[in-house]
Each structure stands twice: as structure tokens, then as C-alpha cells.
């Protein structure tokens, strides 16, 4: 039962509009005061930055817009942030947690 149909690899760029598919659930674990992502075979442990990014991934905003938003909020260089979240989202896309 481990065959998954080969699909096109999702490549994340500044223009991508990422979102989590319906079967991936990010929820707050009140008992431990942290967020978790439940996926079919796995459980992910996002840090606060990842949680913030993923909350902004609504399928409408582009990665560039998300980076811009966070750059203002954290008062940090936009390029660094964009590079950081592209790497993170690419990793998650490869694991099927994020679609774009």
C-alpha cells in the first residue's frame, strides 16, 4: 500500500500561491500550548515562524506577499525572509503538506 501516483513536483517560487490541502490539519494542542500538523502518515512539529507562515498560506497570497507582510512585522530584510520561507515551503511541498 505504499505506491503513490507519481505527480509533478511542486516548485515553490515567489509567485507561488501555497495552501495546505484539506487532509492536512494544523491545529493548536492546548495541552502543550503548541501547534501540530497532522498528515496522513506523519506528525509535524512547526516552530512559531512556520505556524505564522502557514496561517498566511491561503491559496490566494503569493510567497512574495507573505514575505513582504512578515518583513514589515519583524522589521527584517525581505530577501532573507523570502529565501527562508521558500526553502521551508519547498520542503513541505515535497512531503505533500503544502500544495501550490
Amino acid at each position: 500500500m505504499n505506491e503513490t501516483a507519481p505527480r509533478q513536483r511542486t516548485v515553490i517560487s515567489a509567485e507561488s500561491k501555497p495552501a495546505m490541502p484539506r487532509y492536512i490539519k494544523m491545529r493548536h494542542d492546548a495541552g502543550r500550548d503548541r501547534w501540530i500538523i497532522l498528515a496522513p502518515e506523519r506528525l509535524f512539529d512547526p516552530d512559531p515562524i512556520a505556524v505564522e507562515v502557514l496561517k498566511l498560506c491561503d491559496g490566494a497570497r503569493t510567497v512574495g506577499e507573505i514575505a513582504e507582510h512578515l518583513a514589515k512585522e519583524y522589521n527584517a530584510p525581505r530577501e532573507d525572509i523570502e529565501a527562508d520561507i521558500v526553502t521551508m515551503l519547498q520542503d513541505l511541498a515535497d512531503k505533500g503538506v503544502v500544495k501550490a
Binding site: 506523519r42 512539529d45 512547526p46 512578515l70
Partner: peptide
């Protein structure tokens, strides 16, 4: 967001 070095923001756990 103060690190520039590539950093893992999401840890993955594979169940076995």
C-alpha cells in the same frame, strides 16, 4: 526570522 542560515522550521516525525 533573525537567522540567515538555512534552518528547519518544521520537524518531521516518521512513525514506525
Amino acid at each position: 526570522m533573525n537567522e540567515t542560515a538555512p534552518e528547519k522550521h518544521v520537524k518531521e516525525s516518521t512513525v514506525t
